[in-house]
Write a protein that binds this DNA or RNA. Structure first.
Lengths: 397, 397
DNA sequence: ATACATAGTATATATCTTGAAAAAAGTCAC
DNA sequence: GTGACTTTTTTCAAGATATATACTATGTAT
């Protein structure tokens, strides 16, 4: 009903600049010649715009490559040290802060443990700010060189200037994390749900590469999903889309920690699995416990596979994705041994047509992906709205 | 990961033309002055582009309106007779063909009954082609004036040149409806699932007006949903997104006509409700039967409300829409009497934050909306890619 | 009548993309 | 080595666009 919106002739240049930069970022070192084919732009425009990008130091030359008896092609690539992105993972047990260059090489890392139940906002804010200082100091990167800070948090994030967060497990209700952090740093902030940042990491660098319609299912203690529509993370009206874990799969069934009954999370969440198997809950050993359950072929696992398959089938029926990525530590533990059974269970609970076009694969990134994905929020903005302030261009020289 | 794509300076004009036309279409008669505010374009550009549109006869002047002591504003509006759109509804019991002008006034209508089980492709194609001829003859509209034909069909439509259709209830498996129709007409064809076209009708002209993130839930004999993301119908990788009726709500529960067990449709589909109430199935009386069940307060209805609420809650948790529209004849029958209870059931099965931002309302359009929505497929294309062939401009004069 | 207010248009300007021509930077045959 | 050839990249002129500003059109108020 309302989509297009474009105006002046300057937007054209800005848009084409973004198109070229994006191509260079995702395809890697490329010649101007190839860029004309990749983007559909004329050679002249490619030359013009890459000229701008070069003089702004956003991209750099990266060697030559022979051509059949003609002038060799000059390879271009994004300047990895044009700027840096910081990714923050606020998890149940830790606050992790990582600094990446534009090639997503980790240049520094800081981690702070959180006591169970010790999730006071002030503490988390202190850790984040300390972490930022630490990674900057360790890497020798100046704050001016940082393009922004991406933060993955649990719960629902209302995007806006304050970045209000609702996280039941943390006891956070309408916590303005963005506003609080801005008292300690002036860098641009991008706050999002951790499942979504991890999903974006899998989409950009992991098992979701190249898909335009995908769902990344994340199964750990909690259960969530990151929904990719037309190549972009879908957030919904208030950024809370993707609460797959609390969809009802068995109306009136097991009680979930959200208070509801019959939630998917109450069956396939890691804690729920252990509880159903009659095992004591202990965050220190739960990973080993789950692995042992899977190894021994417990009937609880068979049941879990059935619920997981049905849950995935629901996603496929609703979203018709071309790819489903199963991730999260519990998801990977189950998937590594039982992927075939999971697929079978999904097939049995799904319409044949959408099932046949959806490939179900395992995530390829580890738990670090939350911070990596948070950093991609920064990169996403950089690729879209990079307008090369002269100050930065000079500073980066 | 991949979004922007724009090129030449001519695209600018095309885009701004679409922006203005869209504004005029949805806002109604408007002056150039107001259009500058609505679109953000400069007065000069509005003047230029509307000048083009006027001389192409796509829009026309529509009277004056006073301004406080100054030159009166000239109102502009879409020329309702610039072209026409045909909408086709291929349903279980009928093929309905309607012809609309650009104001969506119905100018002619043709209907053909289908016998139960009599859904042979050739028959349906014949009806559609005959209907097109009939509405053209009745309205006196020449084929050249028709912008296109939108067709809403049951089942899954693989968009493509052939418009392959998979409709189990019709016994259609990979039927190339588009290719078959093209043998009888050379007009542009737009084929889509009937639930999606009806959803688009509610979005444009009904209870969904103005919402960018919405789900239109359609409950009749079957159960489906039309998902609106960022103002546009979401179709997924193969146009089969929105198969809400076959998501599992009670794993291992009632058998559904799709062959699966525990599908939502097996609980809230009209036939399923009657079956659960122990009533005989008869398509002629089912609407009255359902109304009577609702009126008498049958316990089956209470249960149905519970399932429906949970199903809606699942949609809200996954999509975080700002609006949910409940439509379809069974949905409306239930909703008219039980909306409060349905909302309560949804609230109990939904996370509080996304529930609080989603309004649940009833559809405002009747069953005719399938054909109307099919016609909007034509209009959508017209608004986006209208490039005013001189031939058409002359013909319309 | 004249002043004033508002709507809409014409003109000049700065940008933009592009196709064609020119330049650059190699290879290859001799 | 040198000239012909190939391929990539840049330059340049042409065509198209949105916008700001100045200007015209068309009313009302006094």
């Amino acid at each position: 009903m309302a989509r297009p919106e474009r105006r002046t002739v300057r937007d054209l240049r800005k848009g084409n600049r973004a198109v070229l930069l994006r191509a260079l970022y995702f395809v890697g070192p490329t010649s101007r010649h190839e860029l004309t084919a990749l983007t559909g732009l004329s050679a002249a425009t490619v030359s013009n715009v890459t000229g701008d990008l070069l003089s702004d130091n956003v991209i750099v030359e990266a060697g030559l490559v022979d051509s059949d008896g003609g002038r060799p092609r000059v390879l271009l690539r994004v300047n990895p040290v044009y700027g840096y992105a910081i990714g923050v993972d606020v998890g149940e047990t830790h606050v992790r802060v990582e600094l990446f260059d534009l090639d997503m090489n980790e240049k520094a890392k800081a981690e702070f443990a959180l006591r169970p139940g010790g999730h006071e906002v002030e503490l988390v804010v202190r850790h984040i700010l300390a972490g930022i200082e630490a990674v900057l100091a360790d890497s020798g990167v100046a704050p001016e060189q940082v393009l922004g800070i991406g933060i993955g948090v649990p719960g629902i994030v209302e995007s806006g200037p304050d970045a209000l967060i609702h996280a039941q497990t943390f006891g956070w209700d309408s916590v303005p994390l963005g506003a609080l952090l801005r008292e300690g740093t002036s860098l641009p902030l991008y706050v999002d749900n951790g499942a979504k940042t991890m999903g974006q990491a899998e989409l950009w660098f992991g098992a979701g590469r190249g898909s335009r319609n995908a769902v990344i299912a994340l199964i750990g203690s909690g259960v969530g999903a990151s929904i990719i529509t037309d190549g972009v993370t879908y957030r919904g009206a208030n950024s809370s889309a993707g609460e797959w874990g609390h969809t009802k799969i068995a109306l009136g069934g097991r009680t979930c920690r959200c208070g509801g009954r019959g939630c998917l999370e109450a069956y396939i969440g890691a804690e729920a699995i252990l509880e159903r198997a009659g095992l004591p809950l202990d965050t220190a050993t739960e990973q080993a416990q789950l692995a042992e359950l899977v190894r021994s072929g417990s009937p609880v696992i068979d049941e879990t596979v059935e619920y997981l398959g049905a849950g995935l089938a629901n996603l496929i029926n609703l979203f018709n994705p071309e790819r489903i990525v199963v991730g999260g530590w519990a998801g990977l533990t189950l998937g590594h041994h039982l992927l075939t059974k999971i697929k079978k269970a999904a097939a049995e609970n799904c319409l044949t047509q959408p099932f046949s076009t959806a490939s179900i694969v395992l995530g390829r990134l580890g738990p670090d992906a939350v911070a990596l994905g948070a950093a991609t929020l920064v990169i996403e903005e950089f690729l879209l709205n990079n307008t090369a302030s002269p100050a930065r261009a000079a500073a980066a020289l």
